[in-house]
């Protein structure tokens, strides 16, 4: 029997939801297991880093890395897996675009560590101990991964062959992506393995959107009784659908919640947040500056709304650091 293609999964800065997707394949996961050999999957199987290091280069057909790159360890693993894999896939929003962890780029490392290890209400840390790369205790020294100032996408750290979008990718997106990889011809390198149109295309509420939509204020989901049939934008809800890649079949909208943009922009857009801003701003009803300010004030968290999943991969990338010294990343 011919050797089955080897597949690996890895987990960087993320919540673990992407690994859930693999499980969400349900019965289909059996087909996957039948078709491939999983050689590395820390969350589910007992393989170690040294097992990967022992493999010849390009030994793995495809490695799915979820999570953004935030620590030295994640960066090392990204390089290692790149070397060992024929195909490296960024799997899910964090590794594709930066994801929710990428919002950390609105702050600097110092203030993040302060907030988490000193200021949070449930923390008791009188000595103000912060994580550090080297720690000495009773003559024993231990080395920990370093924590970068800036969260990066996988593609900003290593060469990535394909991207699978979503937070997490839906089972259907993953299934379709696997079929693409296992069967026949591969798409051009760098392709996002999902349709290249915006979500409105497959939105069940598409027909209810008028041609002359104008928005006077935005509402948050908890502030309104949401009509289950009508386009959410026409109801004043900030729906990212028009600026977000489709393929997920709009589960959020079907669940009566607006799209938050996890699949990122289409291939033709460099900055998803900038695009939706440009589009929504042009649909504002008022032309008076004061009223426009009032309308925009109804969006309490613009960065978190427009760049929820994609700040590190956007044109903004991060908040400017005081010394504006972005490269190379500093390690604590």
């Amino acid at each position: 029997m011919a050797e089955k293609p080897k597949v690996a999964f890895y987990w960087c800065a993320s919540c673990g939801g992407c690994d859930e997707t693999v499980v969400d394949l349900a019965e289909a996961v059996l087909d996957v297991v039948a078709a491939v050999d999983i050689v590395f999957w820390p969350v589910a199987m007992d393989f170690k880093r040294k097992d990967v290091e022992a493999m010849p280069d390009d030994a793995i057909l495809a490695t799915f890395v979820n999570g953004a790159i935030r620590t030295t360890e994640q960066e090392e693993m990204a390089h290692l897996l790149r070397r060992k894999s024929k195909l490296l896939l960024a799997f899910g929003s964090c590794s594709h675009l930066g994801g929710i962890p990428g919002l950390a780029n609105l702050f600097d490392r110092e203030s993040i560590l302060q907030a988490v290890y000193c200021e949070s209400p449930s923390t008791v840390n009188e000595e103000g101990v912060l994580p550090s790369v080297r720690h000495n205790d009773n003559g024993h020294s231990v080395e920990l991964p370093g924590f970068y100032e800036t969260v990066r996408t996988l593609g900003q750290v290593v060469d990535v062959d394909f991207y699978i979008p979503g937070c997490p990718p839906t089972a259907r997106i993953l299934r379709t992506a696997l079929q693409t990889l296992l069967g026949g011809e591969l798409p051009p390198k760098g392709t996002v393995l999902a349709p290249d149109y915006a979500l409105c295309e497959e939105c069940p509420r598409k027909d209810s959107k008028p041609v002359n939509l104008s928005i006077s204020q935005f509402k948050r989901p908890q502030e309104v009784l949401i009509d289950e049939e009508k386009c959410l934008l026409t109801q004043g809800l900030l729906c990212m659908g028009p600026a977000t890649r489709g393929g997920c079949e709009a589960p959020c909208v079907q669940g009566n919640m607006p799209c938050t943009g996890c699949c990122g922009p289409t291939s033709r857009v460099r900055d998803q947040g900038g695009k939706i801003l440009s589009s929504l701003a042009s649909l504002l009803e008022s032309k008076e500056e004061g009223e426009i300010d009032q309308a925009l004030a109804t969006i309490p968290d613009p960065a978190g709304s427009f760049y929820r999943y994609g700040l590190p991969s956007s044109l903004l990338r991060r908040r400017k650091l005081p010394d504006s010294n972005l490269e190379p990343p500093k390690v604590r």
């Binding site: 409105c200 002359n212 939509l213 489709g246 589009s279 042009s282």
Partner: peptide, 9 residues
């Protein structure tokens, strides 16, 4: 995607 954003503008 037929989102109609452009039409009134």
């Amino acid at each position: 995607s037929g989102c109609k954003t452009c039409i009134p503008l």
